[in-house]
Amino acid sequence: MLYAVLCYDCESEINAWSKELDDKVMADLGAVNQRYAEAGKLGPVARLMPTTAAVTVRKGATDDIIMDGPFAETKEQFLGFFVLEAATLDEAITFARELSAANPANGTYEIRPLQFFNPGVPIT
Protein backbone atom coordinates (compact mmCIF):
# COMPACT_ATOMS: atom_id res chain seq x y z
CA MET A 1 0.00 0.00 0.00
CA LEU A 2 1.23 3.49 -0.81
CA TYR A 3 0.58 6.24 1.71
CA ALA A 4 0.71 10.00 1.38
CA VAL A 5 1.71 11.76 4.57
CA LEU A 6 0.65 15.42 4.63
CA CYS A 7 2.15 18.10 6.83
CA TYR A 8 0.06 20.89 8.39
CA ASP A 9 1.24 23.77 10.55
CA CYS A 10 0.70 27.45 11.28
CA GLU A 11 2.39 29.28 8.43
CA SER A 12 2.90 32.60 10.25
CA GLU A 13 5.01 30.73 12.81
CA ILE A 14 7.09 29.00 10.15
CA ASN A 15 7.61 32.39 8.48
CA ALA A 16 9.03 33.67 11.77
CA TRP A 17 11.69 30.92 11.84
CA SER A 18 15.28 32.01 11.43
CA LYS A 19 17.15 30.63 8.42
CA GLU A 20 19.27 28.55 10.80
CA LEU A 21 16.21 26.94 12.37
CA ASP A 22 14.63 26.29 8.98
CA ASP A 23 17.83 24.69 7.68
CA LYS A 24 18.09 22.53 10.78
CA VAL A 25 14.48 21.32 10.52
CA MET A 26 14.98 20.45 6.85
CA ALA A 27 18.18 18.57 7.69
CA ASP A 28 16.49 16.64 10.53
CA LEU A 29 13.54 15.71 8.32
CA GLY A 30 16.00 14.79 5.58
CA ALA A 31 17.72 12.34 7.93
CA VAL A 32 14.43 10.53 8.57
CA ASN A 33 13.72 10.52 4.83
CA GLN A 34 17.16 9.13 4.12
CA ARG A 35 16.58 5.97 6.15
CA TYR A 36 13.33 5.22 4.33
CA ALA A 37 14.82 6.07 0.96
CA GLU A 38 17.67 3.62 1.60
CA ALA A 39 15.10 0.93 2.35
CA GLY A 40 13.54 1.64 -1.06
CA LYS A 41 10.32 2.84 0.51
CA LEU A 42 10.22 6.58 0.01
CA GLY A 43 8.69 8.22 -3.05
CA PRO A 44 8.54 11.95 -3.85
CA VAL A 45 8.93 14.47 -1.04
CA ALA A 46 7.92 18.10 -1.52
CA ARG A 47 7.81 21.27 0.49
CA LEU A 48 5.35 23.84 -0.79
CA MET A 49 6.10 27.54 -1.06
CA PRO A 50 4.19 29.87 1.29
CA THR A 51 0.47 30.20 0.53
CA THR A 52 1.14 33.77 -0.61
CA ALA A 53 2.58 32.19 -3.79
CA ALA A 54 -0.63 30.21 -4.45
CA VAL A 55 -3.31 30.69 -7.10
CA THR A 56 -6.65 28.90 -6.96
CA VAL A 57 -8.78 27.75 -9.91
CA ARG A 58 -12.48 27.18 -9.35
CA LYS A 59 -15.42 26.53 -11.66
CA GLY A 60 -17.60 29.60 -12.14
CA ALA A 61 -21.07 29.97 -13.67
CA THR A 62 -19.72 30.88 -17.10
CA ASP A 63 -15.96 30.70 -16.89
CA ASP A 64 -13.30 29.49 -14.49
CA ILE A 65 -12.56 31.78 -11.57
CA ILE A 66 -8.89 32.29 -10.87
CA MET A 67 -8.12 33.74 -7.48
CA ASP A 68 -4.93 34.82 -5.78
CA GLY A 69 -4.07 32.97 -2.63
CA PRO A 70 -4.70 29.49 -1.28
CA PHE A 71 -7.92 27.49 -1.13
CA ALA A 72 -9.50 28.74 2.08
CA GLU A 73 -12.71 26.74 2.57
CA THR A 74 -12.83 24.00 5.16
CA LYS A 75 -15.89 22.01 4.13
CA GLU A 76 -14.04 20.28 1.31
CA GLN A 77 -11.41 17.64 1.91
CA PHE A 78 -7.97 17.26 0.42
CA LEU A 79 -8.31 14.50 -2.20
CA GLY A 80 -5.23 14.37 -4.37
CA PHE A 81 -2.40 16.20 -6.02
CA PHE A 82 -0.34 16.46 -9.20
CA VAL A 83 3.26 17.60 -9.66
CA LEU A 84 3.80 19.49 -12.91
CA GLU A 85 6.89 21.04 -14.45
CA ALA A 86 5.78 24.35 -15.97
CA ALA A 87 7.85 27.23 -17.32
CA THR A 88 5.32 29.83 -16.23
CA LEU A 89 2.48 30.19 -13.80
CA ASP A 90 0.10 30.55 -16.75
CA GLU A 91 1.09 27.10 -17.97
CA ALA A 92 0.28 25.64 -14.55
CA ILE A 93 -3.06 27.46 -14.55
CA THR A 94 -3.88 26.02 -17.99
CA PHE A 95 -3.16 22.53 -16.69
CA ALA A 96 -5.41 23.09 -13.66
CA ARG A 97 -8.20 24.39 -15.88
CA GLU A 98 -7.95 21.30 -18.09
CA LEU A 99 -8.20 19.11 -15.02
CA SER A 100 -11.18 21.10 -13.84
CA ALA A 101 -12.87 20.73 -17.25
CA ALA A 102 -12.23 16.99 -17.29
CA ASN A 103 -13.66 16.61 -13.80
CA PRO A 104 -17.47 16.65 -13.62
CA ALA A 105 -17.39 17.66 -9.96
CA ASN A 106 -17.13 21.26 -8.77
CA GLY A 107 -13.82 20.79 -7.04
CA THR A 108 -11.12 23.41 -6.65
CA TYR A 109 -7.55 23.21 -7.83
CA GLU A 110 -5.02 25.12 -5.76
CA ILE A 111 -1.72 25.76 -7.52
CA ARG A 112 1.20 25.83 -5.10
CA PRO A 113 4.74 26.10 -6.42
CA LEU A 114 7.22 23.75 -4.77
CA GLN A 115 10.06 25.13 -2.72
CA PHE A 116 11.80 21.79 -2.33
CA PHE A 117 11.34 18.57 -4.31
CA ASN A 118 13.02 15.22 -3.98
CA PRO A 119 11.71 12.69 -6.53
CA GLY A 120 12.67 9.82 -4.19
CA VAL A 121 13.41 6.25 -5.21
CA PRO A 122 11.21 4.18 -7.53
CA ILE A 123 8.58 2.42 -5.44
CA THR A 124 5.70 0.18 -6.40
Binding site: T52, A53, L89, D90
Partner: peptide, 16 residues
Protein backbone atom coordinates in the same frame (compact mmCIF):
# COMPACT_ATOMS: atom_id res chain seq x y z
CA UNK B 1 17.37 29.81 -5.35
CA UNK B 2 14.35 29.15 -3.12
CA UNK B 3 13.85 32.87 -2.51
CA UNK B 4 14.37 33.68 -6.20
CA UNK B 5 11.85 31.04 -7.31
CA UNK B 6 9.26 32.33 -4.88
CA UNK B 7 9.80 35.88 -6.15
CA UNK B 8 9.46 34.79 -9.79
CA UNK B 9 6.09 33.17 -9.02
CA UNK B 10 4.91 36.34 -7.29
CA UNK B 11 5.91 38.41 -10.32
CA UNK B 12 4.01 35.99 -12.60
CA UNK B 13 0.99 36.41 -10.32
CA UNK B 14 1.29 40.20 -10.33
CA UNK B 15 1.58 40.43 -14.13
CA UNK B 16 -1.76 38.62 -14.50
Amino acid sequence: RALIDEALVLIDKAIR
